[in-house]
Design a protein around this nucleic acid. Structure first.
Length: 447
RNA sequence: GGCCCUAUCGUCUAACGGUUAGGACACAGGCUUUUCAAGCCUGGAACCAGGGUUCGAUUCCCUGUAGGGUCACCA
């Protein structure tokens, strides 16, 4: 059997991670079985659909490397198709034009005439790949509306027609679609379409266990991109939310996911989205980058005001890689309390900070700084790198006590309680600035 | 409220009747160390409750409880 799945977003909002995961699962399932995924934009609601959202959805999927094999189709361009089916449904007696009697207090928007499906009022039973047998009594649905008019079809109708015409074999969608299923099966039977296989995914939940939505903070894929996450990390994390390979392996490339994916391993219950774990995944992927890749990818996240020359960053950023989980974290390093804030300008700090807590001797600290200054002054500009600087100072630091020498130096250079080590800090500042700051510290401590 | 779905550490999960209930994130402690991270090591932490079925239930069944989803002329 040739498997065809589909991803049918409606462009009424930015693509959020829940829908992105649904797209991912449809994609993985199709690819795993050598099938295809249809991409269809459900924009029958002209009021709420926007081109901007449509573009966001396309860009988000492309960023995550989730591709389709058919489409994109736009329902707004397929009215002739739907019209044909509506006419046939009416002719066959499965649907009818209904005169609506406006009830007191009802919305004014409502039409006086709509098209309703003639509900056979029977029990529907279907087999869900994830949940097993599910039963509904459709009587409670009544004769539901399938179109506002012959030219204005509604969701349930268009979905069923399109899935049929696009030969969709497997419908993998969110849990919240379960209650739509009986209605859609009824329409399928009305138009004589075969029943596809259903698989309802557990929802992605917010911390409070409710359905994840905009009010829970960052939910759109693009927000995660803007926050400095790598698409591989997001994809990997999302794949493991509600699915597992049955082994302890957690890091997967897209190829590996396609190879390992199976619907039987999908979880039944909802999963809470955990930003901390996503950050952990992102760090794992960050570590796989080489220095140049890391820097090139991080630079766009730096605020305009602190972007220096590319060469400067190529030199600096690799030195602080192990301090971050995301590219946004890199930018954070330069802010007020960040580890690299000292690069912004001459730091101000109380002279007492220069003293090492285990041996707070001002005279000794001054002497150490003076000696370090001499040693570093002898280094030439070109060899002012962390390793060389360390080699130059290490013997002296060992002799006098590492904390006694290195703590004052680090504070002299950064003025911060937390920062990279003094060798890295000196290398970042460069020889001239390093000596300047040491001189400054010596004068402060002398007062 | 009706209908539907779900239930293992705080979180994501493994277990397909017999295990000291495993792993990961997070957390705690330790090591390393000039600070902060990172890294390494160690540790605490779970089968929703009650009935069955069975020699034996986390696992199968029922009930309860809890949580969630859905009830449009939106998708």
């Amino acid at each position: 059997m040739n498997i065809i799945t589909r991803f049918p977003p409606s462009p009424t909002g930015y693509l959020h991670i829940g829908r992105a995961r649904t797209a991912l699962f449809n994609f993985l399932f199709a690819r795993h079985h050598g099938g295809k995924m249809v991409f269809r934009i459900e924009d029958t609601d002209k009021e709420r659909s926007k081109k901007e959202y449509e573009q966001d959805i396309i860009d988000s999927l492309s960023w995550m490397n989730i591709s389709h094999d058919d489409g994109p189709y736009r329902q707004s361009e397929r009215n002739a198709v739907y019209k044909k089916y509506i006419e046939k449904l009416i002719k066959d007696g499965c649907a009818y034009v209904s005169k609506e009697i406006p009830e007191a207090g009802e919305e004014e928007k409502k039409r006086s005439e709509v098209i309703r499906f003639r509900n056979p009022n029977k029990k529907i039973e279907f087999e869900d790949l994830i949940r097993g047998k599910i039963e509904f009594d459709t009587t409670e649905l009544g004769d539901f509306v399938i179109a506002r008019s012959i030219d204005e079809p509604l969701y349930h109708l268009t979905v069923v027609i399109d899935d049929f015409e696009m030969k969709v074999t497997h419908i993998i969608r969110g849990d919240d679609g379960i209650s739509n299923t009986p209605r859609q099966i009824l329409i399928q039977e009305g138009i004589g379409a075969p029943r596809p296989v259903y698989a309802h995914l557990p929802l992605i939940l917010a911390k409070d266990k409710s359905k994840l939505s905009g009010r829970h903070g960052a939910v759109s894929v693009m927000e995660y991109r803007n926050d400095g996450f790598m698409p591989e990390a997001l994809t990997n994390y999302l794949a493991l939310l509600g699915w597992n390979p049955g082994t302890d392996k957690e890091i997967f490339t897209m190829e590996e996911l396609i190879k390992e994916f199976s619907i039987e391993k999908i979880q039944k219950s909802g999963a809470i989205f955990d930003l901390e774990k996503l950050r952990w995944f992102n760090r794992e992927y960050l570590m796989k980058l080489d220095d140049k890749q890391f820097t090139d990818m991080a630079i766009p996240y730096l605020p305009e005001w602190l972007r220096g020359t590319s060469a400067e960053w190529q030199r600096m950023l690799p030195l602080v890689r192990d301090k971050v989980h995301t590219f946004r974290d890199v930018a954070m390093l330069f802010q007020e309390k960040g580890d690299l804030h000292f690069t912004a300008g001459n730091p101000a700090y109380p002279s007492s900070l220069l003293l090492w807590k285990k041996e707070p001797d001002a005279m000794a600290a001054k002497a150490h700084l003076e000696h370090v200054r001499t040693l570093l002054g002898d280094l030439d500009e070109a060899s002012f790198a962390p390793e060389t600087i360390k080699d130059t100072l290490w013997a002296y630091a060992e002799e006098k006590g590492r904390g006694n020498v290195l703590w004052p130096l680090r504070v002299a250079l950064t003025g911060q309680e937390k920062s990279p080590d003094p060798f890295i800090s000196a290398a970042i500042l460069g020889k001239e600035e390093t000596l300047k700051r040491i001189d400054n510290a010596i004068s402060i401590i002398s007062k």
